[in-house]
Design a protein around this nucleic acid. Structure first.
Lengths: 249, 249
DNA sequence: CGTTAGGTTGAGCAATATCAAATTCGGTGG
DNA sequence: CCACCGAATTTGATATTGCTCAACCTAACG
C-alpha cells in the first residue's frame, strides 16, 4: 500500500528552518543533532505547558500535533494555535518566562528538548542563520495569530473553515507533510469547532456543504482539498511574507 | 476646571518600561532622550504602516491612539490591536521586516523615531534593563493578542465589551492615563464594533445595557467604569503575567 | 457482539446582523 | 445667537446565522 504522506520525517527542523533563512553546514549540524536527542513523549490530551506556570524547557515537536488554548469559567474553550511537527513549544527568550497559554497534546506527541536553539538565537555571532530563521518563524507565528483573530472576528463559518484548511495545508507543505492538498488532519469536529469559534453541529454542516460542493474530502482524519483555489479564494488565505530577504534555493 | 486625566504625559516611555524591568540611570537617560526627539505627526485616519510593505522606522507613540487592522475583500474590517501612547509601532528586530498588518492613526498621532530601542534591545551588554523591558512588553503584546482571539472566538457581545474595557483601563492605568476606571476613549461605536467583531447596532445596544445596569458611563469619549469588579468578572479579564521576575518598586 | 466516541440529522431558538429611519450632538458659517 | 450640516448615535422591524437540544447512526475496538 502506498503511503500518501509520511507521518514522520527526519530532518523536520532543518527542512523547515532552511526555508526561512540560509543555514551553513555548522548550523545544519546543530539542527540535526537536536533532532537526534532523546525524545520526550506526551500522551494524547496531556498538558505540555500550563498557563501562568514557569516554562522550564523549550521543546520542538518531532511527531504529533498539539494546541494552545484558553478556557472560560463555564468551560467554553478557544484554541489559539495549532502546533505542528517541527514547531516549538516554550521557545522563549525572556528570563523566567511564564506560559501565556496552556499547551495540550492533540495526539500522542514526541518532542526533543531544544535549549540549543535558544542559545543559537541569542549568541548572534556564530549561528546567524539559525537566529535569523527563528526570528522569521516567530514572525510567521505572529502572522498566523493575527489571521486567526481576523478569521474569528469577521469571517463566516464557511470562510473560517476554508481559511483554516488552507493555512494548515500551507504550513504542512513546508514540512513535507502535505502534497497536492492531501494531508492527515487528526482533529475531531469538536476540536475544529474550538479552533474556529463555532459549535460542533455547525462545523459538521459546514464540512458537509464543502463536500457537497466538491471542495474537499475529509474522512478518517485525511483531508483532500479538491478545489484548492476555490478554498483559497473563499477563505481569502494569503501565505505569510515577513521579510524582504530572499532565501537562496 | 479639574482635568480628570492628562492627555499628554512626559516620561511616558520611562514610566511604562520601568514597570516591566529595572532600569538604571543610564537607561532612563536613553529613554527620556528618545522622548525628546523631534515628533512625527500623523493625521487622523492616515496610515502609519502598510501590510506587506517594508518597515523603515520604529516609532513610539507619544500622543494619540492608533490601531492595527486587516480588511477583507468586501470591506469587512477587523481591528487586531489598539495602540496606545507609549506603545511602539514597527519595533521589530528581524532583518528587512515587512509589516504584518496595516497601522492607522485613530486620532491625530505624534510619534518619535526610536531606533535607539532596537539598538538597546540587541546590544545586551550595556542596556540589560531596556532589553528586558522590551522583551516583557513584546510578551504582553502577545498575551493581549491571544486574549483578543479568545474574546472574538468564544465570548458573547456583552462579555467582549466588558473584557475590552477592562483591558484598555488596565493598559492605560500603567501609563498614568486612567485612574479609578475613568479614561478617555477616542473610539466611535463603529470602531468598537470592528475591534469586537460585532455590528455597530449591536455595540450600541450592548453599551446601553451596561449603562442601564450602572456598569459604565460613556459620553463624549469619556468612559467611567462604575462597577469595575462586575466588568472584570463578566469579561473574565486577567492582567498579563509574563515573567516570574519581580520588579523592584 | 456490546460499547463508545465521533459523526449526522432535525426542530426550534437565541444572538446578532441588516436595513431604514429618526434623533442627537458638536461644529461652523451667517 | 441661530440655523444648518454631517457625523455619530439611537430606535424599531425584520432577517439570518449559527446555537442548543435531542435523537439517531456508524465505525472502530475490545
Amino acid at each position: 500500500v502506498l503511503r500518501v504522506q509520511p507521518n514522520f520525517r527526519s530532518n523536520l527542523l532543518a527542512t523547515r528552518l532552511s526555508k526561512l533563512a540560509n543555514l551553513n553546514e555548522h548550523e545544519l549540524g546543530i539542527l540535526s543533532a537536536i533532532e537526534g536527542k532523546p525524545k520526550y513523549s506526551f500522551p494524547e490530551n496531556s498538558r505540555i505547558l500550563n498557563e501562568g506556570h514557569e516554562i522550564n524547557a523549550a521543546y520542538v515537536i518531532i511527531s504529533g500535533w498539539a494546541y494552545l488554548h484558553r478556557t472560560l469559567a463555564d468551560g467554553r474553550r478557544q484554541l489559539l494555535k495549532v502546533v505542528l511537527p517541527g514547531d516549538a513549544i516554550g521557545l522563549c527568550s525572556r528570563s523566567r518566562p511564564l506560559a501565556l497559554t496552556t499547551a495540550v497534546a492533540l495526539t500522542p506527541v514526541k518532542t526533543v528538548e531544544a535549549g540549543e536553539l535558544l542559545a543559537a538565537w541569542s549568541e548572534d555571532g556564530r549561528t546567524p542563520g539559525i537566529a535569523n530563521a527563528l526570528e522569521m518563524s516567530a514572525a510567521e507565528d505572529e502572522y498566523y495569530l493575527l489571521c486567526h483573530a481576523a478569521r474569528l472576528g469577521r469571517q463566516t463559518a464557511y470562510e473560517r473553515m476554508a481559511h483554516l484548511l488552507c493555512e494548515l495545508e500551507y504550513r504542512l507543505a513546508s514540512r513535507g507533510l502535505s502534497s497536492g492538498g492531501v494531508f492527515l488532519l487528526p482533529m475531531t469536529q469538536e476540536v475544529l469547532a474550538d479552533v474556529l469559534g463555532l459549535s460542533v453541529v455547525h462545523v459538521n454542516r459546514t464540512l458537509q456543504q464543502m463536500r457537497r460542493e466538491n471542495k474537499i474530502e475529509f474522512n478518517r482524519g485525511k483531508v483532500s482539498m479538491l478545489d484548492l483555489n476555490g478554498l483559497l479564494n473563499a477563505g481569502e488565505f494569503t501565505p505569510p511574507k515577513v521579510s524582504a530577504h530572499a532565501v537562496a534555493g
